[in-house]
Amino acid sequence: MRYGDQRVGEYKLTTEHKMRARIRALTDGAATGLAVLSTLLVVAPLVAIFVYLVYKGASSLSWAFFTKNPAPVGEAGGGMANAILGSGILLGVGSLIGVPVGISGGIFLAEFGRGTKLANAVRFTADVLNGVPSIVMGIAVYSLIVVPQRHFSAFSGGVALGIMMIPTVCRTTEEMLLMVPHAVREAALALGVPNWRSVLSITVKTASPGIITGAMLAFARVAGETAPLIFTAFGSPNWSVALNEPIAALPLQIYVYAISPYDEWHRLAWAGALVLIVLIVLAVSLVRYVTSRGVLKGAS
């Protein structure tokens, strides 16, 4: 059908149309501006925290910080050597509990329980457990271990941290295992490898960079936890490696020093915070680097 050069239903831009177009463009611009502004507002405190940490912490860091135990009130000097060691011990105990149990749980979710009701329930519970406040973990472990033992101990602190690691490790392990192609499993089984062996040396091994990533994320998360340690590890001014005695921890020491009225202790708190954050940021960046290089190098 031809209309020749006669236009059908000529469309006229009235002033009303122009106004509306302008309003829409303005709204669009305003929304973009607000989004940019909020991003800046979010990045600002992060930068502020880091600048302050480095500025305050670096000036207080010294060799003594890493080699000396806390000095009594009023005495200059002193460090957090015992707290750094204590954090290491607590995290070691925590990882010994949290990582194997978490990885095994993840293996169940991805390899044996896929699609079953039990697996869904476990997954859901893990996610919910992840959101339980750390202070609640603290008092639960207190009444579970500290009360029967009648004293605070490094062991109970490690248990609290370990319990907190389980859900994170479990869920990341599951997600990593789900990314392993089926062909890899089938190839192993077709060779007559027993199932347990195929899971451990083929599937888990293929996904191991991702699983390690998950474990390190969980590690970084609990490394800064203070609340569950207040009533379990309790803190100690002495050099201690015994598992059944109270032990110092870096975050705990930072907390105690931060709320104290002494300038010298504030200084040490900043230095401790800097050390802690550097450790955590290193772990997270490493994780980020590994994941960005492709989680499953062996599989593809």
């Binding site: 044996f112 893990a126 609640v136 639960a140 859900p167």
Partner: peptide, 28 residues
């Protein structure tokens, strides 16, 4: 047997997550 055992070990670890929640609740 090894397979069975392995599978049950994994199930046990997964169930420990329920165990933790129940334990916390009971203690509190």
């Amino acid at each position: 047997i090894a397979d069975r055992g392995f599978q049950w070990l994994m199930v046990l670890c997964a169930l420990s997550i329920f165990g933790i929640v129940v334990l916390i609740a009971v203690e509190l």
